[in-house]
Design a protein around this nucleic acid. Structure first.
Length: 206
DNA sequence: GAGTAGCA
DNA sequence: ACGC
């Protein structure tokens, strides 16, 4: 499998999932959203909605509302436990994550064609020794990444359907975001858009 | 500061 | 740069 190191600890795997694997993963995500519908996260304090909608699977899910960012074991609207993580997702973690414990959370972000994600760090976890593994499905995204300080210089890379990217070691806490999608760049999702899965170890092992 | 607006 |  080919990989490209974008910056120390940030590794890009183009075409990690072939088309049949993407279709299998998409079918799993349809089942997940049936049990755990997409919801609109909101900014702490202001309540401003994200343009991305999200859900998740696994033991814990990430939610954001006026009260703040947090991981919790239940869906914020239905109150039900998150659906189980598909085997395919666990296998991706095992092959890309190189971490001796299974992930606690798989966040599923759905980008409509106009959705964006501002630059941020993934730092609501306890286990920063564990990597974050990201899988892309659907329309190509212009992904931007920088360094550990918000003011560090940034670069961008196009993440296409089936690509994976891993934030580990010195890149675990880098700032990153999605500038925009390239509408119509993939026919995987019938109505367009992009799904991004991020696999995380949330709590410290033990 | 996981939001937006606006300008270089 | 803003502002909740």
């Amino acid at each position: 499998m080919s990989s490209i190191t974008l910056s120390p600890g940030l590794v890009y795997y183009p075409d990690y999932l072939d088309r049949p694997a993407q279709e299998r993963l998409l079918q799993s995500l349809r089942e997940i959203t049936k049990a755990a519908p997409l919801f609109t996260p909101r900014m702490p304090r202001t309540g401003k909605p994200f343009s991305v909608r999200m859900t998740g699977c696994g033991r814990l899910g990430w939610v954001s509302d006026k009260a703040g960012y947090r991981y919790q074991p239940t869906h914020p609207e239905t109150g039900a436990p998150w659906p189980a993580m598909p085997d395919q997702v666990l296998r991706a973690w095992e092959s890309l994550g190189a971490y001796p414990y299974p992930p606690d959370a798989c966040l599923v972000n759905f980008y409509e064609p106009a959705a964006r994600m501002g630059m941020h760090q993934d730092k609501d976890e306890e286990a920063f020794d564990a990597p974050v593994v990201s899988l892309s499905l659907g329309d190509t995204a212009l992904f931007r990444y920088g360094g550990l300080e918000r003011t560090d210089p940034t670069r961008s890379v196009r993440l296409r359907s089936g690509d994976a990217i891993v934030f580990g070691g010195p890149a675990r806490l880098i700032y990153h975001g999605v500038d925009r999608l390239m509408p119509g760049s993939s026919d995987l999702l019938p109505q367009g858009g992009r799904l991004n899965l991020t696999l995380r170890k949330v709590t410290t092992p033990l």
